[in-house]
């Protein structure tokens, strides 16, 4: 039996302490299998991003069970969380590229975490990755000289260059126009399929829902039955 890439069981999560303690996730149960593309949608404040950050090891789980790539992250130490982050790519709403680094150097940062890769190999793989996202001619550009769509493509290259098993994306198209957004999602889709990478994507953007193998809907901290999405769009 193949273990699911992400396995969530009876997960609850609270913000704040004492009298201000507020539950934001209620009894989440979710399994995502290898190679699956899952889009998570729902209104603002429903807890989508919280769940995503917990899967990404940015926030530690408090109660229940959260296994990512077979590692239990519930109650994990800060150090364990840091190490777990090295196994997945993360794409944010903003590109968050380092302004002082060229496209190539930014992508290379995704490889420097893995000590067994030589400098020559890091450069080669980063250049190949930039070529894959269609920026082979912009390798030595600083972010300030790239368009919004190009920057997000560099961010994707950075997230995928180490060939992670999981790609987590939080509203990756929100800051882009329709065409660039479409291109970015198609690119993520294509690369993930080639690398057999699992994708969990949080979005409000109904235009990109068609790439999903499965859509899950979240409301008020619970996974709910999705309303008719065709009607929404």
């Amino acid at each position: 039996m193949i273990e699911p890439v992400i396995y969530i069981n009876n997960l609850d999560h609270y913000f704040g302490k004492g009298a201000l303690r507020k539950q934001v996730l209620f009894d989440i149960n979710l399994e995502i299998n290898i190679g699956e593309i899952v889009i998570m949608t729902g209104p603002s404040g429903s807890g989508k991003t919280t769940l995503l950050t917990m899967c990404g090891g940015l926030r530690s789980a408090q109660s229940g069970s959260l296994k990512v790539l077979g590692t239990e992250l519930c109650g994990a130490s800060a150090k364990q969380l840091t190490i777990s982050r090295r196994h997945h790519g993360y794409i944010f709403q903003a590109h968050n590229l380092h302004e002082s680094l060229t496209a190539l150097q930014n992508v290379k940062m995704g490889l420097e975490l893995h000590p067994d890769i030589s400098v020559a190999e890091m450069n080669q793989r980063s250049i190949e990755m930039l070529e894959l996202v269609g920026l082979g001619d912009r390798v030595n550009y600083l972010p300030e000289n790239l368009s919004g769509g190009q920057k997000q493509r560099v961010a994707i290259a950075r997230a995928l260059v180490s060939q992670p098993k999981i790609l987590l994306a939080d509203e990756p198209t929100a800051a882009l126009d329709k065409q660039s957004g479409r291109d970015v999602v198609d690119l993520m889709h294509k690369l993930a399929k080639e690398q057999d990478c699992t994708i969990l994507l949080v979005t409000h953007d109904n235009r990109i829902l068609d790439v999903a193998d499965r859509i899950i809907y979240m409301e008020d901290g619970r996974l709910a039955k999705a309303p008719d999405l065709q009607k929404v769009s």
Binding site: L58, K79, T82, R85, R86, H87, Y90, M109, L113, R158
Partner: peptide
């Protein structure tokens, strides 16, 4: 700060 946070999210200590 944003870049540093991103590096942390990537797994930098």
């Amino acid at each position: 700060l944003r870049e540093y946070a991103t590096f942390k999210a990537m797994g930098y200590s």
